[in-house]
Amino acid sequence: MTRPTVPSLLVEKLAAGELPPDKAEEVRARLAEAGELDRLTDLQRDNEQMLAHLTPTMVRRQVERRVEEARTVRRRRTTRWVGILAAAGLVGAFALPRLLPSPSDSPTQAIDEGNRIKGLQPELRAWLQTDDGPVILTDGATVHEGDLLQLSYVAAGRPHGAILSRDGRGVVTLHTATDTTTLTPSGEQLLPFSYQLDDAPDHETFFFVTSDRPLDVAHLVRQLERGADTLSRPDGSALTTYTLRLRKEAE
């Protein structure tokens, strides 16, 4: 890089008419002395070529896209911090169900399956392990390949249930036991294993099915493999299903 006789900033400001008159005169004199007055006309020609090659519309679109991407990242970080705060209240989240009425006097006992439950409802929670600690993921949260998730559930008095997931390739995974559908009916219960997301695209959707009676797990898996979003018993009666859909995003 050879240093120009007259600094380029001064020439740019002269061309833009942003120098005070005395300074403009001085810079023009320096250019003349160095035999570089044609730098001003070169700038003008260069400007026209650049604007023709990289048009204002093209640049605006690119800038708007980058600004929007940056906002998306900030939103994601905000969501993460909200989650971290929630995680900071993790004790409360775990303690709350233990303070609730026991299954015997829970209002959920008398609710028919498939109906909306008033008061405490069965709930599936997904926690993301991060360097900052566990972060709870809300429905629609963004996750990535390799993310390590820990699932937990609140049965809200339901004695039976199963947790399954279906990824963007339609692959169904059973996260609870294959030989029993018995749940711990009260408190927030962590599953014994965490779950690492693979490279399946688009989404990872979790289904938490609860019931007053044992469930046919194989039947549930078959329904999800066929693409069903609501689940039912073999006799067609509806099952209460809590769905948590996480959006999968490539790194």
């Binding site: 833009a16 700038l43 260069d46 400007n47 604007l51 640049v59």
Partner: peptide
Amino acid sequence: RAHGPMVLR
């Protein structure tokens, strides 16, 4: 339009 070429330069 007014300053982009200067920035790119």
